[in-house]
Design a protein around this nucleic acid. Structure first.
Lengths: 114, 114
DNA sequence: AATATACATATAAAATTCCGATATATCCAA
DNA sequence: TTGGATATATCGGAATTTTATATGTATATT
């Protein structure tokens, strides 16, 4: 299980990146995909995810469209144009972050950056 | 400049690691060292650092000793025994975190882990 | 038929954490 | 004597996250 402190601040990066890769996804699907990719080591909480999605939407980085699945309503999100830029930027930022942190923490060869 | 969101949750890791490497340091020195190591890209704010140091001390991960430099008092911090373990653990956690995030974000060869 | 689990979105309360501003004070160089 | 670097510290507020709760459908198990 990954420390929650470290995950703080990466939620939006994760969401934007997954949407960039998969085109469109709904909330529940995002949590599932993250669990799958991390073999259960990262579990997004609903209380964090949904507010984050709403924030991204109000910032116009993503848009949503509701779809009826039987009697249930499912809300799909996809990136806007500025969301696509934001996703790329966030990834770059993350790589910078890891590079810099590697230097500060002097983690040695277990953390190599190209 | 590294995004503040990403730095969230790494402050204690940074402090513990620097103390592990340097034996003993005082607050101001820590901010200077981080600035030096990151070429100015990471600037710890006093408002974050001092409360963090106090928290680490009350958790018995570090201890402090005051020293007079001329008329000024300087507060040196060093790791306790459990602080040393905590430092190692935090580094391991960080490496795990980067490994997992690399998979989620699918950052490709720009982020290689041993 | 009843119950549990998975699916699905959402919010409110509480805790944490961090940032920006502010306060205080010394030392040294121009 | 003024400003910049050194040095520690706290307060108020903002932002984010966790926990808990609410609501309801669909499906599988017993």
């Amino acid at each position: 299980m990954i420390s929650k402190d470290l995950l703080k601040g990466t939620l939006k990066t994760i969401v934007l990146r997954l949407l960039e890769e998969n085109g469109r996804m709904y909330g529940y699907e995002i949590t599932r995909e993250v669990e799958r990719l991390t073999e259960g080591k990262v579990q997004l909480s609903w209380g964090a995810l949904y507010p984050a999605l709403h924030k991204l939407e109000s910032d116009h980085l993503i848009t949503s469209e509701e779809e009826s699945i039987g009697k249930r309503v499912r809300k799909y999100y996809r990136l806007t144009e500025s969301g696509t830029s934001a996703a790329k930027e966030k990834i770059r930022e993350f790589i910078d972050f890891v590079t810099i942190m590697g230097r500060v923490l002097d983690t040695g060869p277990s953390l190599n950056l190209a």
